[in-house]
C-alpha cells in the first residue's frame, strides 16, 4: 500500500486577495513504503509548498493527503498523528538547534511524543548512531560544534521521532563534496537499515541520483514526472528545458547526439559514459 498519497492537491497563497497565487495544482501522487524519493524542482516550482502538505503544515485548498491510508485532515487527532508520522527537516536545520546539550536537542521530538525515558534514550542513541554523532558529543553544547556536525545533530533530531516518512529539504545545501557525500551516505544507510520511506528535496539531479530509488520532478506547480532514476534521465532534455541542473556528463552526451554521434542520452555518471563509448566501439558504430 502507498505510504503517502495525494489526490488533486491544490494550494494557493494569499487566497481571497488580489495577490492570490497558485503554488501547486492538481497533484496526484502515490509513494510506496521504503522508497527513497528525490523531489526535484527549481526555486518557485512548488516543491517546498508540496512537502509542507505532507505533515499538515499547510492545509490544501482542494484535494486530499493520505498518510498510511489516513486522510490527515479528517480530525484534530489525525492531523496531530501526521506530525509524528511525517518528519520534516528544513533547509539549514542547524540554525534551529536550541537546547543546552546535543542529547537534549535530539531528545526534544521524542519527548513531545510523551514516550518513556528509556524509549527516548534508545531513540536518541540510535539516531546519533545513524548520523555518526559520537557519544562524547552528546553532552556538548550544540553551539560548540562545526557546521557539518550541527547539521547531522539536527537531522538526528528528526530521525529520533522515527517518522514513517522522513523528509529532508536540501540536506546538502552549502556543503563541500566530502560533506555532501557524508550526509547522502548516512541517509542511504538509515533507509536501508530501517526500511522507512525517505524523501529528499533538491534542485540538483546530480546529488540525489546516486542514492534515490525514485525521482519526482515538480515543474510549474505540477508533478511533471515520477519514475526511476533511469526513466527520468531518459528525459534529460526536458529536465534542462525546465531549468534543472543535470550532471555534466549528461550535457556532454546530449551535445554529442546533437553533433550527429549516435550515443545514448540517458547517461549520468562518468563510468556509464565510458562504458557507452566502449560499447559503441565494440559494435563498430564509432572509432577513435
Amino acid at each position: 500500500m502507498a505510504i503517502l498519497k495525494t489526490e488533486h492537491l491544490t494550494y494557493s497563497y494569499s487566497t481571497g486577495t488580489p495577490f492570490e497565487v497558485t503554488a501547486i495544482e492538481d497533484i496526484d501522487l502515490e509513494i510506496e513504503t521504503g522508497e527513497l524519493v528525490a523531489v526535484i524542482g527549481h526555486t518557485g516550482s512548488g516543491k517546498s509548498t508540496l512537502i509542507q502538505h505532507f505533515n499538515g503544515l499547510l492545509k490544501p485548498k482542494e484535494g486530499k493527503v493520505y498518510v498510511d491510508g489516513q486522510d490527515i485532515w479528517e480530525s484534530k487527532k489525525t492531523l496531530r498523528a501526521s506530525r509524528f508520522a511525517v518528519g520534516l527537516c528544513f533547509q539549514y536545520p542547524e540554525y534551529q538547534l536550541f537546547e543546552e546539550t546535543v542529547y537534549k536537542d535530539i531528545a526534544f521530538g521524542p519527548k513531545n511524543m510523551k514516550l518513556s525515558e528509556e524509549e527516548i534514550d534508545r531513540r536518541v542513541r540510535e539516531a546519533a548512531r545513524f548520523t555518526g554523532v559520537p557519544d562524547d558529543m552528546l553532552e556538548k553544547s550544540p553551539f560548540d560544534l562545526s557546521g557539518g556536525e550541527k547539521r547531522r545533530v539536527a537531522i538526528a533530531g528528526v530521525m529520533a521521532m522515527e517518522p514513517k516518512i522522513l523528509i529532508l529539504d536540501e540536506p546538502t545545501a552549502g556543503l563541500d563534496p566530502k560533506g555532501r557525500d557524508t550526509i547522502l551516505g548516512l541517509i542511504q544507510n538509515y533507509r536501508e537499515e530501517t526500511g522507512r520511506t525517505v524523501m529528499i528535496v533538491s534542485h540538483s539531479m546530480d546529488d540525489v541520483a546516486k542514492i534515490a530509488t525514485k525521482v519526482l520532478v515538480i515543474n510549474d506547480k505540477h508533478a511533471a514526472m515520477y519514475g526511476t532514476v533511469d526513466e527520468i534521465y531518459e528525459r534529460s532534455e526536458e529536465l534542462i528545458a525546465m531549468g534543472l541542473d543535470v550532471p555534466q556528463v549528461t550535457k556532454v552526451f546530449l551535445g554529442l547526439r546533437e553533433k550527429g554521434i549516435p550515443v545514448r542520452t540517458d547517461i549520468y555518471t562518468v563510468e556509464q559514459a565510458r562504458a557507452e563509448l566502449l560499447d559503441l566501439r565494440a559494435k563498430g558504430v564509432v572509432a577513435w
Binding site: 555534466q248 550535457k251 556532454v252 551535445g255 554529442l256 553533433k259 550527429g260 554521434i261 549516435p262 563509448l277 563498430g284 558504430v285 564509432v286 572509432a287 577513435w288
Partner: peptide
C-alpha cells in the same frame, strides 16, 4: 587522443573531433 578538457563545451568539441562515426 584528447586535448585538455575543463568545461562541457571543451568535452563535446574534443569528443566530436576525435570520434569518427562509421
Amino acid at each position: 587522443a584528447l586535448p585538455d578538457i575543463l568545461t562541457t563545451e571543451d568535452c563535446i568539441e574534443a569528443l566530436a573531433n576525435t570520434l569518427t562515426v562509421k
